[in-house]
Design a protein around this nucleic acid. Structure first.
Length: 892
DNA sequence: GTGGGGACTTGCTAGAACGGCA
DNA sequence: TGCCGTTCTAGCAAGTCCCCAC
């Protein structure tokens, strides 16, 4: 590929100047500056609480009881709808309650009562209501029972409990507090877009509002700029002109689709002008993110070549990156491209796009192993054998217990076998010979020498290399899934009606390629065949697509990798939108609280649904077809999914995305409780609770409250702000290991909020037993050492070891040292054990990848000198390259 | 206004890759 | 060095939401 000329490697090698460890260090003047910057912000911690809606006092102490409480006490409280989500009062987990590291965190915290008290006072001063909180005491005996609990219940358990009688009062009081910001009469508001009403002038009107920097009332963009993370939005027009492709408009000037506007970009446009002059004045390189500098340097090269070449940038924060991070940055698009948004205009995502298409799985190689039918070997054609093998390899999976899977498989296989084939019933089929053959193949592969494996890997890489990369607007970008899906049996989740169906082999004639107009059309890798269609649509980001063989009306796309500029840009926009919600959230909460009692049934349903989405982080819940798994989200909740238990508890039980069960009991406001009762009345179990509502109506309403707001933004917002709050509150200046525990704890709370579950690994109990054995063994060692120590102090030799062998005669100092070392070892193992147990059903990765603004993590790492690779793995570092130059003072 | 096509993002997991330990 | 446990990541299923035609 021509792009190989692109000198990314050299650039990054140049950056690899120091081998310093891994830490974002605060040092010298710049760090001092950063520190003071963040301190400025920290000096008004309550501002952030107020702003984010999550007062510190709402967070349970770390002596973690949430897992011990049977019922969730989510308290939407009176106060909550207005400025905080009850979910955001994450209580600690059993790990934190028991883990040694976590304990250290706990120990260093101020007493709960003190914290609550002081914050309560603050809130009262601010005219806010105060929650009645009860803190359940620890009950370790109940711990095990938690394992079977849904995540949400775990988190919510032990949430601040509001006296339901007070709830309404407080709600009203809170509403009162908000009245000045929220229009009193609906009629009077009508001419005014809701969004403009709800944009909480928190920055302006609330003196306690946390500003993200010392500049208290700065618009969002200004904040972004200041924290160094708005490079993408900066001077867009100027920067975009620098991109080679931008001057090249499609020859016909027409696009295939009506261009899509980037909402976030639009949102920022107005603000941008207000800070523009400020931005223009800023010329100091010190404030320019490193990638921006790279871009600057690169721009001249770009003029002469379609592939961007980089020269050595001025290292800034990068100095603190360790080699590992640098290596990743090397591979990231940002190291080699500008941070300019890839779309230069309305809906246009790129100007030039070059790639090599997709790679197909190799053709099927028949193995000739015969399966049995009624105990006798059967002859199968290669095509029939291929499908039989797909089934055979799944013999030891759970799918074998699913009649639907078998039925669908047999139905599709029969079409290939033909009507008169000897095989007529799956019941009499014995696939064991093929299964065993497959196991042997796996074993053979395992037994290959390292050298053989290496050769194989290299060969594969050689074959795939050209498909791995695309050149988008002159920048070499990694392609995500350039391999066409191999044929197989559809593994639908939950009780998917199509599980077991045959996913047929995809051929070039199924595939539509999207590529730049002037780029060479990728050669079809299968001779004699050709692509279905070639398009030149620069308003979309896919490189290729084909129809899903299981659901032909749906598509499978080939996109750029998560680390690409395009994905990074859209990721950043997503988080910026969520940050924007911060400014509107109070108004939105006030509005939906008011509408709980609306006479307009649609309005009332929208209010309650929004409340649930905000408070419980529920998904929107689109309508589903009959040929999809029967799962629900907020708008599609059925009567049978929500049981009201007086006086004000709602019991949720439904299958959400991926058929993950959501079970939760929450206390809600009386008005919500009554509304749900009303929505359920005169309906059957399978009827929709929100019968006047669907996701499009809900999102249309949300857009009136804030530009670009949709249901899913609440999840991002609540996840990120929880992380930000917890990190800022719970980091007590411990060592790296302790800080990592703090992060994990915050990450876990977010995962629980979002109900990110995972199945317990098969080896979990074995692992736990092994750990217990090792701990017991070490405890025995300590006992022996203590005996030896006592004897040594009396000048006696040590006793013989358990197996009768004589031991070395050590002096008391050496024995004491050994005891201390063993104790540390035991502590570490205890900690590992507790973390493992605690996280066995919680998936931390999903929220990290999709919901937590990486800038929060990066900034926190910089503030506390935690190596970023302790938190982000290689691929996350690449995916979040755009966030790496954030200022340490950044707050969500 | 509604439905459905289309384009993405989000999510879990199997298996590959890695790394610690004997 | 090889085993075994752990972590990472590719793969692909399953969501959300936009937009356009009717």
């Amino acid at each position: 590929m021509a792009v190989e000329a692109y000198d990314k490697k050299k650039l990054m090698d140049d950056l690899d100047e120091d081998d310093e460890p891994l830490v974002f260090k605060r040092s010298s003047s710049s760090s001092k500056q950063n520190q003071s910057n963040s301190e400025t912000k920290k000096s008004v911690p309550q501002k952030h609480e107020q702003q984010s809606g999550r007062p510190a006092s709402d967070v349970r102490p770390q002596n973690g009881q949430n897992n011990f409480v049977q019922k969730s006490k989510m308290v939407p409280s009176s106060k909550t709808p207005l400025d905080r989500s009850p979910l955001m009062s994450p209580k600690s987990s059993n790990s934190s309650s028991k883990g040694l590291a976590a304990k250290s965190m706990v120990d260093s915290k101020p007493s709960t009562s003190m914290t609550n008290e002081s914050n309560s006072v603050k809130r009262q001063i601010k005219g806010e209501s105060v929650l009645n909180e009860t803190t359940p005491g620890p009950n370790e005996d109940l711990e095990d029972s938690e394992d079977d609990k849904p995540l949400s219940a775990r988190l919510l358990a032990g949430q601040p409990k509001v006296n339901s009688g007070n709830a309404n009062k407080v709600a009203n009081a809170s509403n009162f507090g908000q009245k000045s910001k929220i229009p009193k009469s609906e009629d009077s508001d009508d001419e005014m877009p809701l969004s403009s009403k709800f944009r909480v002038k928190s920055n302006a009107g609330d003196p306690t509002h946390r500003s993200s920097t010392s500049g208290e009332k700065k618009p969002l963009l200004a904040e972004c700029r200041q924290n160094g993370s708005a490079s993408m939005e900066r001077k867009p027009s100027t920067v975009l002109k620098k991109r080679i492709g931008d001057s090249v408009k499609p020859a016909d000037g027409s696009y295939l689709k009506k261009p899509k506007l980037s909402e976030t970009s639009t949102l920022h446009k107005n603000k941008e002008s207000s800070v523009k002059s400020e931005m223009e004045e800023e010329d100091d390189e010190d404030h320019v993110p490193i990638s921006q500098r790279m871009k600057k340097t690169a721009s001249s090269d770009m003029k002469s070549t379609p592939v961007k070449k980089m020269t050595k940038p001025t290292p800034v924060i990068t100095k603190q990156f360790n080699k590992k991070s640098k290596k990743i940055m090397k591979n990231s698009k940002y190291s080699g491209s500008s941070k300019v948004p890839p779309s230069s205009g309305e809906g246009q995502k790129w100007t030039t796009l070059v790639h090599n298409g997709v790679i197909f799985p190799p053709p099927y190689k028949p193995h000739g192993v015969k399966m049995l039918y009624k105990g006798k070997p059967v002859d199968l054609t290669p095509e029939q054998e291929e499908v039989a093998t797909m089934y055979a390899v799944m013999l030891e999976t759970e799918y074998m217990n699913k009649p639907k899977f078998k039925e669908n498989f047999m139905s599709d296989w029969r079409k290939i076998l033909g009507r008169n084939h000897v095989i007529q019933s799956l019941e009499h089929c014995d696939f064991t010979p093929i299964f065993e053959w497959h196991q042997q193949e796996k074993e053979k592969k395992k037994q290959m020498t390292t050298e053989e494996k290496k050769v194989q890997k290299e060969e594969k890489l050689k074959q795939e290399e050209k498909y791995m990369w695309a050149i988008l607007d002159g920048v070499k970008e990694k392609v995500g899934n350039f391999r066409v899906e191999p044929p197989g049996l559809f593994r639908g989740r939950g009780e998917h009606p199509k599980m077991g169906k045959l996913k047929k082999r995809i051929r070039p004639s199924d595939i539509t390629i999207n590529i730049g107009k002037d780029a060479p059309i990728p050669e079809c890798p299968i001779s004699g065949e050709s692509w279905k269609e070639i398009r030149h649509d620069n308003t979309v980001t896919w490189l290729a697509f084909w129809n899903d063989p299981i659901n032909p009306k749906e598509f499978k796309y080939v996109f750029l990798a998560a680390s690409s500029t395009l994905k990074g840009q859209s990721d950043k926009e997503k988080y910026e939108k969520a940050r924007l919600l911060k400014d509107y959230i109070q108004g939105i909460r006030t509005a939906y609280t008011r509408d709980f009692t609306s006479n307009d049934p649609t309005k009332k349903q929208i209010a309650v649904a929004t409340y649930l989405i905000d408070k419980l982080a529920l998904r929107a819940g689109n309508e589903k077809d009959d040929d999809e798994a029967d799962t629900v989200g907020c708008c599609t909740l059925k009567v049978e999914n929500v049981e009201p238990v007086p006086p004000n508890i709602l019991k949720f039980d439904f299958l959400g995305k991926d058929s993950i069960r959501y079970q939760n009991e929450v206390e809600v406001e009386i008005a919500v409780f009554k509304a749900i009762q009303q929505f359920r009345s005169r309906k059957k179990g399978g009827d929709d609770i929100f019968d006047k509502l669907d996701t499009s109506k809900l999102n249309a309403h949300l857009k009136e409250l804030m530009p670009g707001l949709t249901a899913k933004v609440f999840r991002t917002y609540n996840a990120s702000i929880t992380l930000d709050d917890m990190l800022s509150r719970e980091t007590k200046g411990g060592d790296i290991a302790q800080n990592v525990v703090v992060y994990q704890h915050a990450n876990k709370e977010v995962a629980i909020i979002c109900n990110h579950q995972r199945t317990v690994s098969k080896s979990h109990s074995a692992q736990m037993s092994r750990l217990n054995e090792k701990i017991d063994e070490l405890k025995g060692v300590i006992e022996e050492l203590r005996t030896d120590l006592a004897r040594a102090k009396k000048g006696k030799p040590p006793l013989k070891s358990a197996d009768g062998k004589p031991k070395r005669n050590l002096n008391p100092d050496a024995l004491e040292k050994k005891i201390a070392q063993t104790t540390v070892k035991i502590e570490k193992m205890e900690r590992d054990k507790e973390t493992k147990e605690d996280l066995k059903t919680v998936a931390l990765g999903t929220s990290k990848i999709n919901y937590l603004d990486p800038r929060i993590t990066v900034a926190w790492c910089k503030r506390h000198e935690v190596p970023i690779e302790k938190i982000f793995n290689k691929s996350l570092l690449a995916k979040f390259a755009w966030a790496m130059d954030v200022e340490p003072g950044f707050r969500f």
